[in-house]
């Protein structure tokens, strides 16, 4: 199970040297976590200006006053923490096919990003979404900044059960309802919902000025269409809807074609809206996914 591996010390050790980059800070040196030239409380001096009534007397430059007898106020560059929200899809489809361990793949990728981000004391939280149209499920952890708090996520992910529908739009609505400052939102899901649903959700995040990253989870069997030949009835694990199919080599090719189309459409949407799209196809390809997709997600070695 990949969930257990997510908190394995050996695995985490591989992540120690990685840093999660931020698009808006690309111009500054690596590791700087300031966001824009916003004045405010901080440690890095920005400029000097004449005192005006109402300024905080704590920022008066007493040395300048003693030498020039002018009241001068020192200004600082405001430091804003990057808030990283990792949304994990806990709908029933993430647990099917069971052998694919899609949810485990989602968890290990999400926690890996969280661990990397916490290396720079970024504020990180995990969120799980799912449920039904009538009652959506939106669960979040507190925000943690230090890696010492990383293992607090273990209890959270261990208690997650994959059930219900993929209520991505409702989850985004819940997220935006509680967040005011823009941050980084990583959505990890199989996106087995209608395109309109995920397009609406991602558009809402962009509108709220979040930097959005998408990790598309697909299982090995789903991608290969490798089902035992014969006549079967397939049942949608979220809706319970049944359909009769006959599996064979030709049908497997059609399944692969369908998943490629679904993935291409999602990737196309993300590209058009400046969303980072990352493919995570197959839990067995974890190492390849991390090697190939983490740079795409802004993870810098």
């Amino acid at each position: 199970m990949l969930i257990a591996r997510a908190f394995d010390p050996d695995f985490l050790q591989r992540l120690d040297a990685l840093t999660l980059g931020i698009k808006r800070a690309r111009t500054i040196r690596t590791g700087r976590r300031t966001v824009g030239r916003v004045l405010g409380p901080g440690l890095e001096p920005e400029d000097f200006r004449d005192y005006s009534a109402g300024d905080d007397l704590r920022f008066l430059d007493w040395n300048t006053f003693a030498r020039l007898e002018d009241l001068t106020v020192r200004t600082f560059r405001a430091e804003r923490q990057v808030e990283l929200t990792i949304m994990l899809d806990t709908s029933a489809s993430m647990a099917v096919p069971e052998s694919d361990d899609k949810f485990g793949l989602a968890v290990i990728l999400g926690t890996a990003l969280a661990y990397i981000a916490m290396g720079e004391n970024d504020s990180v939280r995990l969120a799980a979404f799912g449920g039904s149209a009538e009652k959506s499920r939106w669960l979040t952890t507190p925000s943690y900044q230090r890696r010492e708090s990383f293992f607090a996520f273990r209890q959270f992910v261990s208690g997650l059960k994959c059930q219900g529908d993929t209520q991505l739009s409702m989850a985004v609505a819940d997220l935006l309802r509680t967040r005011h400052h823009p941050g980084i939102v990583v959505a990890i899901s199989d996106f087995l919902v209608s395109p309109a649903d995920y397009e609406d959700a991602l558009t809402q995040l962009l509108t709220a000025r979040h930097e959005v990253k998408v990790i598309h989870i697909v299982g090995d069997r789903e991608y290969t269409g490798f089902y035992p030949p014969g006549a079967y009835r397939v049942r949608d694990c979220e809706t319970g809807e049944l359909r009769e199919v006959v599996f064979g080599a030709q049908q497997s090719a059609l399944c692969r074609q369908r998943i490629e189309e679904h993935s291409a459409r999602l990737a196309n949407f993300c590209e058009r809206h400046g969303i980072v799209y990352s493919r995570a196809f197959g839990a067995s390809n974890l190492d390849a996914i991390m090697r190939r997709e983490f740079p795409r997600l802004g993870v810098i070695a």
């Binding site: 489809s93 099917v96 087995l192 009835r233 397939v234 049942r235 949608d236 979220e238």
Partner: peptide, 9 residues
């Protein structure tokens, strides 16, 4: 009967 993630596939 095979449970699948989505009939969409």
């Amino acid at each position: 009967i095979i449970n699948v993630s989505s009939l969409m596939l």
